[in-house]
Design a binder for these strands. Structure first.
Lengths: 231, 231
DNA sequence: CAAGGACTCAAACATATGTTTTAATTATGC
DNA sequence: GCATAATTAAAACATATGTTTGAGTCCTTG
């Protein structure tokens, strides 16, 4: 039946998601992939017409989930704030949705690691489309929300501020990834845990603390740089 | 003479630096490398006993340069400040040294791109040593300097703040890399330039503006979060 | 100048990879 | 229930890769 028909295709996608998160594109072989999915070697090319297509579909599948989650969180925060939403609510919404999406669940973590890696990859990456499809809308929504919260900002100013927020988010995500990727006895891991004890905490604690810090840090900066005009 | 003797070895290192910055480790073949260096195929294995060793040496060579530059800038900033150096001077020193090292010169940009890519790579990267050798000292110096400028901060607080600064630095570096890596007509590039016009400016303008923004943003945040106790 | 070592070179090796092919098998629709 | 299409399977293909080999060349050195 239909279920069985698409079974191997789905299994391939799942296996690919896992493997591509662990290793880079080139480090994953089609044979390895087929074996992990309990499928035949030729199945990859039959269902996806090549390795690159499979990769693209893997990325795309989760990419849009994260995008929609961030947009929903942002919309909710803006709507809850009425005419003039609170700045820290907006920032917290976007920061939390990213940290949750990237760190909370294993699937999210896998794909985020993958995306982060490919983001820094060479040339015109294998999924440029995803970039525009995800980054642009979220960025636009974030920018608009921030301008709602702080009408005294110019678009340009808001975008600079957003860059600072996003930079912190990425950094706190990567920091956790790097830490968890290191083997238990690794000296670098020990150093990181020493300088940054929260890395040793459970992931939900880490997310909460990081979200809190980024939100407070960024809100404080914005308030100080561009004082709110009180009506 | 000695010069000619090591000539091909040096040529290999130079070519490797360039190629490894453009493509990933796996995407660069030894044959390609040898040809770019005008050397024989076997030269790589003769001089470096394998591809991985060559890669490690490439990274190491520039890694320490950047480390020393950052440490020097930091030391200079601290020393110039006497008993109680100014916070924004410290932050500006570290931010500027990284942006300069990563964006100003072509060689620096190459290796920084390479490092950024490998940083997000899988497993126990090919140069874990470099991580501890570079990150740890700079981090420690930055932390110490910040505590000199703001004695009312705890070590833990300082480290959280540093994470926010470093996250912004990385992000502004990667943003420029990504932008410059895209072909002229690319829609993503157009979008980035539209939302962030400074990306179209010459690199030294970009560096100056970004340094300024990160410094002001971070200083404002820190001052607001932990008001300075005036003696 | 002759011997020895450092270096270069072309060729060969061994293997891992993505893809294609061709036949067998399984499900679908009339 | 059978013909047809969809899917799976095993093997072959073509090629690109890192590495090794062994002969040749150049330079240093005694």
């Amino acid at each position: 039946m239909t279920e069985d028909r698409h079974a191997t295709k789905e299994r391939l996608l799942d296996a690919a998601e896992r493997l591509f998160a662990e290793k880079s594109f080139d480090e994953v072989s089609i044979r390895e992939l087929a074996q992990a999915a309990d499928a035949n070697l030729a199945a990859v090319n039959y269902h996806f017409q090549g390795k690159e297509n499979l990769f693209s579909e893997v990325v795309r599948r989760r990419f849009l989930v994260q995008r929609d989650r961030s947009l929903a969180a942002l919309t909710k925060a803006v709507d809850a704030g009425g005419e003039r939403p609170a700045l820290d609510t907006i920032i917290r919404a976007i920061v939390d949705s990213y940290l949750q999406g990237a760190l909370a669940t294993q699937e999210g973590a896998r794909v985020m690691a993958l995306i982060a890696r490919e983001m820094h990859a060479s040339g015109p990456s294998r999924h440029v489309s995803a970039f525009g499809e995800m980054i642009a809308p979220v960025f636009a929504a974030f920018s608009a929300a921030m301008l709602r919260a702080r009408p005294n900002l110019s678009v340009d100013q808001a975008n600079w501020l957003i860059a600072s927020v996003v930079g912190q988010v990425h950094h706190f995500i990567m920091r956790r990834f790097k830490y968890e990727g290191l083997p238990a006895g690794d000296p670098v891991r020990a150093f990181m845990a020493h300088a940054f004890p929260v890395l040793g905490e459970p992931v939900d604690v880490y997310i909460a603390r990081a979200t809190d810090h980024i939100t407070r840090f960024s809100t404080a900066a914005i308030d100080a740089m561009y004082p709110e005009v009180t009506p």
